[in-house]
Design a binder for these strands. Structure first.
Ligand SMILES: [Mn+2]
Ligand SMILES: [Mn+2]
Ligand SMILES: [Zn+2]
Ligand SMILES: [Zn+2]
Lengths: 137, 137
DNA sequence: TTGAAACTTAGAACCATTACAATTATCTAA
DNA sequence: TTAGATAATTGTAATGGTTCTAAGTTTCAA
């Protein structure tokens, strides 16, 4: 992380570190407000403005992805693998869906000549069954 | 249109009609503000609140799709065919990309068991070359 | 160690959208 | 063809996530 920041002329700060830790430790695509609440248990005097600033910084240096559903608050995701998002409309929860490189190629292949896509974003909406743990009693 | 509205117990109003006409006549994914500006040339006393209300109504009865890019203002699209959106980051313009049913199936096939998607949204970002008209001199 | 550049902070401002409450229009059924 | 119930429109205020600002603080290369 320090390396990635330095590469962009950015500095390593306690605020950036704890925010990134929060994202890594619970990967449920929290909003800035949720990150703020979690970070405050470790760093009670951090400001919400700093949370926004740091999240933006982490997105800039490609450690974190910003995800949007309709006009709701932006959510933050530290999963750097190519993946889609499944938005469960009942629970409001968001799940990562792995995307094989092969599928991404097939998707980009629908673009007519002249279109040069730098990124592809795929969002599913619907409901996800709560999986039953097969090891449960 | 009147039929589609009546089916949902909604009324056919001049405001709804002119807003839908505006969307059909220039399919460049305008924002509510842009729709408001266009509608006012025909109906100068319409209110912005009504534009928002009517757009929402058209979305509800499936005559129009709402499209969002990051946190920018919602854009509105009367194209009912399954299609993706290509967002040109230089010009800010948005283009429809036709999606073959076959591709949509392949995309949905990446979902693990237990996930039931009601809709799939695909957004490309990048740059689109201005196409040269082959019939031009 | 120092100092320039970067960062954090509290609070104000922004802006797309939604809520509100009063007025007006639509449309069903007498 | 109206009456009147229901739905829609309107101007304006409020909301909420986010960004801006300007003052103080920290980082880190030299
Ligand atoms: Mn947020
Ligand atoms: Mn809009
Ligand atoms: Zn994710
Ligand atoms: Zn479209």
């Amino acid at each position: 992380m320090a390396q990635r920041l330095a590469n962009s002329g950015l500095r390593f700060t306690p605020q950036r570190e704890v925010i990134y830790d929060v994202l890594l430790s619970k990967r449920d695509h929290p909003t800035a407000d949720e990150v703020y609440a979690r970070v405050r248990t470790d760093m009670p005097n951090i400001s919400l403005a700093t949370v926004y600033n740091c999240l933006e910084t982490l997105v800039q240096c490609n450690l974190v992805r910003a995800v949007n559903f309709e006009r709701g608050p932006t959510r933050y995701c530290p999963n750097l693998h190519p993946h889609a998002h499944f938005h469960d409309e009942q629970s409001g929860s968001t799940h990562d869906i792995d995307l094989p490189a092969e599928l991404l190629e097939k998707v980009s292949a629908v673009l007519p000549p002249g279109y040069d896509a730098k990124s592809v974003e795929i969002i599913f909406r619907g409901k996800a069954q709560p999986r039953v743990d097969p090891a449960a009693p």
